[in-house]
Simulated assay, not measured.
Amino acid sequence: MEQEQTTLPGVQILIPRRIEDARGFFSETWNKETLLGLGIDVDFVQDNHSLSREAGVVRGLHFQAPPHAQDKLVRVGAGAILDVAVDIRTGSPQFGKWTAIKISARNGRQVFIPKGFLHGFVTLEPNTEILYKTSDVYAPDCDGSVYFADPDLGIDWGLCADRAILSDKDRNAQRFADFKSPFTFEG
Rank of each mutant, 00 (worst) to 15 (best):
F121R: 11
R171A: 04
K97Y: 06
L159P: 10
N172E: 14
V122G: 06
P114Y: 08
C160N: 13
D150Q: 10
V86N: 05
L159D: 10
P126C: 05
G158F: 13
H119K: 03
V111Y: 14
D143F: 03
A139N: 07
L73Q: 04
V45F: 14
D87E: 08
H62R: 02
L118H: 12
A177Q: 11
T123I: 10
D156C: 08
D43Y: 04
G79C: 10
L73W: 11
N48L: 00
S167N: 07
K180D: 01
C160T: 03
T134L: 07
G79M: 11
T99E: 14
Y132D: 05
G144S: 01
H62L: 11
V86A: 07
H62I: 11
G56W: 15
Q110L: 09
F112Q: 02
G158K: 10
D162F: 04
A161I: 05
A139F: 09
I130F: 11
T128L: 08
G77M: 13
Q110V: 03
A65G: 07
H68W: 03
I88G: 02
I130H: 02
D152R: 15
S50K: 00
I81E: 07
Q70I: 03
V111A: 12
P182C: 07
P114N: 09
L124A: 12
F183G: 02
N172M: 12
F148Y: 14
D168Q: 14
P151M: 06
G77A: 15
F95Q: 00
F112K: 07
Q64E: 01
A173N: 09
T134R: 09
R175W: 14
R59L: 08
G108H: 12
D150A: 12
F183D: 02
F95T: 06
N48Y: 01
